[in-house]
Nucleic acid binder design. Structure first.
Lengths: 341, 341
DNA sequence: CCAACTTTTCAAAGCGCTTTGGGTTATCGT
DNA sequence: ACGATAACCCAAAGCGCTTTGAAAAGTTGG
């Protein structure tokens, strides 16, 4: 059943039927009802391909997710981010076009989406400190929202968590517990969020007159195994950190494993604070969470990002949106006073 | 730059240019080169909206991912499955339309995709034992591939792992190690894969003249915390299982936590075998994997599913494809002989 | 009752491609 | 040299919708 047939069956023109269905004012309420009823009865759904061509809008938002360079992994936090965004898209009648490309190919993906007009806007995730995607998207004039930030963050819209403040706060918390030797298991430091967390960490350590040490810090793709190996190596040092900050709960699970492997107890022999994206399958909740954590829901962020992006698409020359989300430091069992060795 | 302009700039008709670009034989090689060169130079990309309307093909494949009923979680294994599929789609020039809906709304999502013609086919994941989606998709004539199976599995195409055989084998392996009391931490038993695993488990236990016990078995959404709570409760029983099979590595991590909480050692006090989807951020690899596991790459499955589905779309009346993937039992440190209490 | 609106409906022109059904030139066999 | 065949190329007709511009119908005020 297409519009033409529907119009014929009603003895109306396509124009009128189209307008009735799309809520234009130029059609009598009674006629609208009649059309609506017939459309429902016939399970009429406008062909989205035709509609998109006619309107020039794709009613679609693009997400480009990259797999890591060597191992083609895909970060599971995207699942939760997508879940949050997807809900909003569904509500607002937008489709979600997901493009999975190897790292380094994002630009091509964006360029193609823009050129063939398959999306009205795109979400930019995991920005690097200097991210070429931003200039590209501005150049081709495709609306976009950045989840995270770059070093120069005023000329586009973004939503980010307060990475620096969060890690500063977490480090001070550990220092206040008596820890003097802090480790950091961070994400890949070409990514802006990792740099900011590192900066917050450095800041707190310096503010209290302590030292950072290269062998107490690692950076890399935040897998479980990466957390394990990082912690294992740090803890094997003669002069080891007594507390560790971790940038992702997935790696924190690896840290826990490394601690258990030594027969130690987390929160007593080593303190751990992790950033927790509140991934739905790895919840760190309840009355006594396993990890003391800086929390911020990645799913909620996804939802809000979607809302902002849709607004950006609808009102193209609105001012830039900047939203900085705080995190919540929740106490768990993974922290305690520094061991008095 | 659109086709019309490109044609004009070349002094050719749209027809010829279109044909040249799309590899039709009715155009001289020399002309084709000339057109191709001009197109490249102008960064010409055909407008996908127009192309889709004209061809009647969406060049898009739909994935409908559901969030769980109560807590709106989204299973992170989708990330890896999507990664595998996405690569293939990119290679074959298909787009991936991702729809995230609450459990129970999948049918509406599929129906809508079909009615407005936004996809050429859909992927069906996590089928229930009797899954109404299959009848629906057949009725509306939308090509689809099921990842997994239902109880009656001959009238449609699917790709599945050998769940029954896998869990039968894993259970026998444990029994051969001397274990007589086996626990099972399974997925939600309305899902077909969980039922089959349960059947394999039951089968092995019965074949060796042992008993299953209701309080040694749980079923539910396979989160870390679910694994933790299930194992904690089982292990607190006066008469406790000495070995546990787990349906997902995420839950297995929770099981490990429960064991550690008791001050026990996995592989000595309790043996654990988990199914391992080889999630990229939770790898269980290396010379001595943490978990003894039945492995099968969900990402590889995603890739293969995408290939099959594309074939199905291209050759609509080809016979059904049924692909049953074996799993690989890999030894880790989580299994050992039954404790002689 | 009629001019002046307002409301309601319509025919037709796109949107930017693909594809059908001819034409127009080369090419060839005889 | 001429009809037949092949090789190229083109105009125009869709694809199914939205939207423009205009006409028809209905309503109002004097």
């Amino acid at each position: 059943m297409n519009l033409k047939e529907l119009a014929q069956s009603l003895g109306l023109s396509q124009t009128t039927v189209s307008r009735a269905l799309n809520g234009y004012p130029e059609v009598r309420e009674e006629t609208r009802q009649r059309v609506q009823a017939a459309a429902n009865r016939a399970h009429y759904q406008p062909n989205s391909r035709a509609r998109r061509l006619a309107t020039g809008r794709a009613m679609t938002i693009g997400h480009v997710v990259t797999t890591t360079r060597k191992t083609e992994m895909v970060n599971p936090i995207f699942a939760d981010f997508l879940a949050g965004a997807g809900e909003v898209y569904a509500r607002e009648d937008y489709d979600l076009l997901l493009s999975i490309v190897p790292a380094g190919q994002e630009e091509r993906a964006y360029r193609q989406m823009a050129a063939n007009g398959s999306v009205d806007g795109v979400m930019v995730q995991s920005p690097r400190q200097h991210d070429t995607r931003i200039a590209l998207l501005k150049e081709i004039g495709l609306p976009f929202l950045v989840h995270g930030r770059t070093s120069s963050s005023d000329s586009y819209s973004w939503l980010d968590v307060s990475n620096t403040a969060t890690f500063d706060q977490a480090a001070r918390f550990l220092i206040d517990l008596g820890h003097r030797k802090l480790g950091l298991i961070n994400g890949p430091e070409e990514l802006d969020f990792a740099l900011r967390r590192r900066a917050g960490f450095d800041q707190a350590v310096a503010a209290r007159g302590l030292q950072t040490r290269a062998d107490w810090m690692t950076q890399g793709e935040m897998t479980e195994d990466y957390g394990y190996r990082s912690a294992r190596d740090m803890l094997a040092l003669a002069d080891r950190p007594t507390a560790i900050l971790v940038s992702s709960i997935i790696s924190a699970i690896g840290v826990r494993r490394a601690i258990a492997d030594r027969g130690w107890t987390m929160g007593r022999d080593v303190s751990v604070i992790t950033h927790d994206d509140m991934l739905s399958y790895l919840s760190n909740d309840g009355d006594e969470p396993v990890f003391t954590a800086t929390r911020s829901s990645i799913k909620a962020a996804g939802g809000r990002c979607a809302e902002i992006l849709i607004d950006l698409i609808r009102t193209p020359d609105a001012p830039h949106v900047h939203e900085l989300w705080p995190t919540e430091l929740t106490l768990g069992r993974s922290t305690g006073p520094a061991p008095t060795s």
